[in-house]
């Protein structure tokens, strides 16, 4: 069963040259994109900067509206984890308030919120004394754990992970990826995993979709796409990856 199905999504942004003038042209951020993600699975969405992958994520989350096309969701319990943990946590809020925000918006009672927050911190392996501190008092990896805890607390069924490890050091990347996998298994969540890094996507996703210039150029099971890429762009992308094992 599909958790998400996107059908022929289009989104064009007007390019303006100067004040009060009309659009000089359109940036085709998404030019007819269709994807589906099976329940409980991870779809890796790879592409280079400006290919439209983040826009697609935001459309699925409902933050921006597509110009045309449909998003069919099996759930309304959505969550998001962003790339830059400096930017995704409100610097003026304590961790306690950051974590309880979603639950307050869901109108949960105070007692239950307290308990759930404690459990969530354990889940992402942060100490309980983190609650009284502010985001800037944590390292990048720890901040990403806070963002994950915030996402998990509202018990989402679909999580859009937008470059969740791109700004982290490699050893931390691995820890966060394992944590994400672990949580996915435990709560049987579905992930849309957006990344420019093919190594990270291969680690996470069963299926993969490759985007270029607002279009999906290739999609299929990760193993197959990596071993027998069919589209020339996928081939270039794969040959550009610099591993250390030859």
């Amino acid at each position: 069963m599909n958790m998400v199905k996107c059908i022929d999504i289009k989104k064009h942004f007007p390019i303006r040259r100067g004040y009060l003038k009309g659009a000089a042209g359109f940036l085709k951020a998404l030019d007819g994109v269709s994807i589906e993600i099976e329940k409980g699975k991870t779809l890796g969405l790879v592409g280079e900067s400006g290919c439209g992958k983040t826009t697609l994520g935001k459309i699925i989350l409902g933050i921006i509206k597509p110009d045309s096309g449909r998003v069919e969701l099996e759930t309304n319990k959505l969550q998001v984890i962003f790339q830059d943990p400096h930017n995704s946590l409100d610097p003026k809020m304590r961790v306690k308030d950051i974590l309880s925000e979603g639950l307050i918006l869901n109108k949960e009672s105070k007692e239950r919120i307290g308990g759930k927050i404690k459990d969530a911190l354990d889940l992402v392996r942060l100490p309980q004394n983190a609650l009284a501190r502010y985001p800037h008092q944590f390292s990048g990896g720890e901040r990403q754990r806070i963002a994950i805890a915030r996402a998990v607390l509202t018990e989402p069924e679909l999580v859009v992970c937008d470059e969740p490890v791109s700004s982290l050091d490699i050893t931390i990347q691995l820890q966060i990826l394992e944590l994400l996998k672990d949580i996915q298994k435990r709560f049987s969540m579905t992930y849309l995993f957006i990344s420019h890094d093919l190594r990270v996507v291969r680690h996470m996703a069963e299926d993969i979709a490759v985007m270029q210039h607002g279009r999906i150029v290739e999609k299929g099971p990760t193993r197959k796409v990596y071993s027998e890429p069919s589209h020339p762009y996928t081939k270039i992308l794969l040959s550009s990856v610099l591993g250390i094992i030859k």
Binding site: L61, L78, V80, N87, S88, L89, M93
Partner: peptide, 26 residues
């Protein structure tokens, strides 16, 4: 444009909530 505003919106926060809880304090 900060991501924490987007995150709040995904969690169902209203405009008033976002303005008073996230934008004005910052």
């Amino acid at each position: 444009e900060r991501d924490y505003v987007a995150a709040a919106r995904v969690m169902g926060a209203s405009d008033l909530w976002i303005i008073t809880k996230h934008l004005i304090p910052n």
